[in-house]
C-alpha cells in the first residue's frame, strides 16, 4: 500500500509532514507574536493555533519559550496584569530577539519565494 493522501495512512503521513514543517517555523511565529507586546504562555499558544493554525501542542510551547529565554531572545517575568486573580509569566522580546526576528523573517521570505517559484514550475 502506497498510502495516498485520502487513506488513513496517507493522512497520517500528511500530518507528520505538516508537523515537521511547522517545527521549523515555530521560532519565527513566536518572535512575531512577542514583537507586538509581552504575552503569557496560553495566549501565545492560542494565537499560534487560532491565527496561524499551527496546531501547536500545549506541551511544546513552554520548552520552546525556555529555550528562547536561555538563548537570550526573550525575557520573562511573573506579574499580575489588570484584573487577573493570579500572577502569570509574561514573555517579551529582547533586543537580541528583535535581531533574530529580522534574520529569521529574511530567511523565511527568501525560502518561501524560492519554494513558490519551484512549486509554480512543477505545475502541469
Amino acid at each position: 500500500m502506497t498510502g495516498d493522501a485520502k487513506s488513513p495512512k496517507g493522512a497520517r503521513r500528511g500530518e507528520s509532514r505538516r508537523a515537521q514543517l511547522i517545527k521549523g517555523v515555530l521560532d519565527l511565529a513566536l518572535l512575531c507574536i512577542l514583537k507586538e507586546r509581552p504575552h503569557y504562555g496560553l495566549e501565545i499558544l492560542q494565537r499560534m493555533n487560532e491565527e496561524a493554525e499551527l496546531d501547536v501542542a500545549d506541551g511544546t510551547i513552554y520548552p520552546l519559550l525556555h529555550r528562547m529565554e536561555a538563548s537570550g531572545f526573550v525575557s520573562a517575568e511573573w506579574r499580575i496584569e489588570g484584573d487577573q486573580a493570579r500572577p502569570r509569566k509574561y514573555y517579551a522580546l529582547t533586543p537580541s530577539g528583535v535581531a533574530e526576528l529580522k534574520s529569521l523573517s529574511a530567511d523565511w521570505r527568501t525560502l518561501s519565494t524560492r519554494m513558490n517559484a519551484l512549486i509554480d514550475k512543477s505545475k502541469p
Binding site: 501542542a57 500545549d58 506541551g59 511544546t60 513552554y62 520548552p63 525556555h66 529555550r67 536561555a70 538563548s71
Partner: peptide, 19 residues
Amino acid sequence: ALGPAEDYARSFHDAYTVT
C-alpha cells in the same frame, strides 16, 4: 494536553542541557 510528566520534563531537560 501537556503529555506525560516524564516526556514534558525531558523536553525541558534536553533544551536546558543544550542551551
